[in-house]
Nucleic acid binder design. Structure first.
Lengths: 274, 274
DNA sequence: GGAACGCTGTACCGTATGTTACGTATTTTG
DNA sequence: CAAAATACGTAACATACGGTACAGCGTTCC
């Protein structure tokens, strides 16, 4: 049963030629607004010619473009009048995608429920106000999170380093670490021995440790100054790092805000370098 | 402070003559849909003549009817894209631990709303059933997402490669790419020239491209077989890749399920290697 | 390697749309 | 009550919008 035009499109998008598929994708991307504009504007947005747009709506079963627009407007009217029906569209609600999404959303709410404003502010302060250097490191699956955070922090602050590669390489960086430095560690099950060893050594040198881990807490929590425990359970063969990812983004935002005065100048300088 | 056209109307409706007031009332009655139709339809709905409609929009301060319609569309776009601002009820405002979190959750719901189960299944099939190789690449901030996905896929499939480092290094890998291969690309604003060039070259070699981008669509969408448009707007100095991250995790799960038969054996083999 | 097919864009056309001028009706004011 | 001003609709107009024919191009299949 196909009830909305969006469903109709995703149902037939597989059978469409390249040009019309581009049209379909741009329409879906910000649905349904592009479809309410003129053919010329639609075609420009999609990067195709006008006739391709018309062929596209014809393939969807509409006699002409105005009829297609009317259908979109009717759909929009129904949505606007009863916001209740505006929830998930039925196709994705029934599918395997939705349990995954729901679980992920739950994970995030739970994660933030156990994370106070003050905690976040403290961690942001630790990352923003430090006089030394910031190091970031992650495990097998969480290393990308460390990279993501490093990519942002390195722009607004000097001395931000992501530790990559083999264990022996990090170990040598220990020599640069001291009391004024911060080590951000990502470690979820199954916790990696090498990371634990490294965190312990850093701790012994007085490095402040910020730990991103799962709800069962990596052993690194023993040495950590701040611990962020994210929910990771989802109906999948793998654990989800999405909640930790969102916490990371939130922290990036908080640190940025904190450094706005200095950071703004820094960012201007960076722009000038390009 | 007047922010929406509806406010503007109710502000000036007192000073309007009878006919224009009827126009205003019918527009407010089912706002903003009547305003998106043609002048003739609008006038018929209001029971007045076309010029009255035009005088009405002129009184609101618009130069012409299209300008008025554009304003309505922009307003609608803003509403549809951030459901949070639409339901500005105090209850959710109180429960909102962090605006950042709320925006992120909205982004995810919105992203999945535009993503049908079939689309996801198609992309999972593309990634799982390919006879060739899989390459993943990302931009400045999204490269970690490519890494994250690669880290998982490489476990359940052979020939999964993350493209890292300098542009010249990827370029040389093009020689290994052909029709049976898949290139997963992450590219959000500001879109990277180097990535676009690379995707185009890969496309010319017949490589199937799966694109993760934002709602404004990277130019790479022109060459992509599949496009995933995630919402990225959050109250922060940075865009959020969290929605794309969740889609990536969902796809990883779907591909894994699809390869369960083969993959299970493969994972057993891997376990034995340790 | 050649031929048939299908897809896409350019150029053009008819028309519906927004717009304006003008005459009539209606209200307002002295 | 008269006269003027304002409001409204009819009708004509110009623009730009949707629609179509056609040719070039790439792709696929013998």
């Amino acid at each position: 049963m196909i009830s909305s035009i969006a469903e109709l499109i995703s149902d037939r998008i597989g059978t469409m030629p390249a040009g019309e598929r581009r049209a379909a994708q741009t329409l879906i991307a910000n649905y349904p607004l592009t479809g309410l504009k003129t053919v010329a504007e639609f075609s420009a947005a999609a990067g195709v010619s006008s006739p391709t747009i018309l062929r596209f709506v014809a393939r969807l079963g509409f006699q002409n473009y105005p009829e297609f627009q009317s259908a979109l407007q009717d759909e929009l009217a129904a949505q606007l009048q009863s916001p209740a029906t505006r929830t998930l569209n039925p196709s994705s609600a029934a599918g395997a995608a939705s349990p995954m999404l729901e679980a992920t959303l739950d994970n995030m709410r739970e994660t933030f429920r156990h994370l106070s404003e003050k905690q976040l502010a403290d961690i942001a302060a630790t990352l923003a106000d430090r006089r030394g250097k910031t190091f970031l490191i992650g495990g097998r699956f969480t290393d990308p999170l460390a990279r993501y955070m490093a990519a942002h922090l390195a722009i607004i602050q000097p001395d931000v380093h992501h530790l990559a590669g083999q264990e022996s390489i990090w170990r040598d960086r220990l020599i640069d670490m001291g009391k004024r430095d911060v080590l951000v560690t990502f470690d979820i099950r199954r916790y990696q021995e090498s990371l634990i060893r490294f965190a312990e050594k850093a701790h012994q040198r007085g490095v402040q440790i910020v730990l991103f881990t799962d709800q069962w807490l990596s052993p690194i929590a023993r040495f950590a100054r701040h611990v962020i425990a994210g929910r990771t359970a989802v109906p999948s063969a793998w654990d989800s790092s999405a909640a930790l990812f969102v916490v990371a983004e939130t922290l990036i935002g908080a640190v940025t805000r904190r450094l706005e005065a200095d950071g703004a100048r820094r960012i201007r300088d960076l722009e000038n370098l390009r």
